[in-house]
Simulated scan of single mutants.
Amino acid sequence: MSQPLLFQPIALRGVTAKNRILISPMCQYSAADGLASDWHLVHLGKFAQGGAGIVMTEAAAVTAEGRITHGDVGLWHDGQIAPLERIATFLRDNGAVPAIQLAHAGRKASMQRPWYGNAALNADDHARGDLPWRVVAPSAIAMDEGWLTPDALDLDELASLREHWRLATLRAVEAGFDLLEVHCAHGYLLHEFLSPLSNRRPDGYGGDRQGRMRYPLEIIETVRAAWPADKPLSVRISSVDGVEGGLELADQIAFAIEAKARGADLIDCSSGGLLGSATAARIPRGYGFQVPYADEIRKSAGIATIAVGLILHPEQAEQILANGQADLIAVGREALFDPNWPLHAQLALTEPGGEVFEAWPQQYGWWLERREPGLRRLGGPALPFRKG
């Protein structure tokens, strides 16, 4: 009996994930001073218990200025290592590859937590103690009316930020993560360098595509040099801006080729986010709406890709892999709805036989296996996710 592609192991450099399911980074806006808490441990830990092959933390800011909100996790000082190390250890001990995303929010920093409005900080936020801070970007262009106008980064600041990325990478190593992702998507700093709509620099870091790619590629080089050679590096991109005059897929194929040449192993293919919320892209959304980007980048750039975006059903995920459109399937908000999505997907895609719950954590499977015969005697399907 053949194993579904979704549940076949995948080797990435010296790291092997037990299956092709990756839990996407999802900001929780619940940290204090950049410190991950018990909330983050439980939030991420249940995805490992739920059977995911790779579990990625939310974006960890490489500087305090690089946070999106006051609630963001960070890795800008050594005191932030231990809480993340606790999480990485739990993920690994429960069968998942621990992964971390590093980021800088650029002009989208100093924002409200989303449940307060997901916009620029205002007087109500100030009253809560969430005060604004200096915002930086490639060019002094505000994201929208009413938003803070960022300061354009000078050459000394670019060099300083490269060092912050390097140090954050070393802290991620010390925390015990096995996969690292550089965030170049969703309108944050490195995406802002890539897009002609947000990068109007007159120096060698702006202008044509090559100039706009220069700084993100320098960050990838910096991170790759600090990250162990036997561990994989992912780069998350917005495959298109979805806005007139913005990035097109051809631009990001060219970027993926250059990222690969600098040691990237995976391209995580999202889209949009340059203007407005990262979760409110101006691109029509249907099931698997970003899969064509992962497919085209995989083929044209010759690099492994991660498909993400409204991939809700096990059969859908399996077909994406069977079609050769991606190498990994990223699940985000569907995992919030069902933290056991990978285990349920395995039931849905495999034929009955043997112990039904053998892939589940022993502490759960022991109980559920013994409940199963009684439920069957009551009639009706005991396992709604089960194939057949």
Rank of each mutant, 00 (worst) to 15 (best):
I303G: 02
K387C: 10
F193G: 03
A152L: 10
A31E: 00
L102K: 01
P284G: 08
L12G: 03
L121Y: 04
R113E: 03
W147C: 11
D265N: 15
D156L: 12
G187N: 10
Q28K: 00
A175H: 05
P114S: 10
G245I: 12
L121P: 02
Q325T: 03
Q28A: 01
P384I: 09
E248K: 14
Q8K: 14
V173P: 04
T16H: 07
R282T: 11
L266K: 02
A127V: 14
L12K: 04
E358V: 15
N118H: 13
L44I: 06
R113T: 04
I329N: 02
V55H: 02
E369Q: 15
A317T: 07
P138N: 07
M143C: 10
G106S: 11
V55Y: 02
L249V: 13
G74W: 01
P361C: 12
S2R: 12
I100D: 00
L180H: 04
E358T: 15
W341S: 00
E355K: 15
F47C: 00
K18Q: 12
G117Y: 10
W133L: 09
L383D: 11
G353D: 11
L12Q: 04
M111W: 06
I81R: 00
F255P: 01
K108P: 06
R212K: 12
L22S: 03
L312G: 01
R162A: 14
A48P: 03
S271E: 05
A36T: 02
A304G: 12
L190H: 05
S277P: 08
M143W: 04
D130E: 14
H126T: 13
H43M: 06
D178H: 14
Q316G: 05
V62H: 01
T169S: 11
N340D: 14
R224M: 10
D241E: 14
M111N: 03
L312E: 06
M56E: 07
D72K: 00
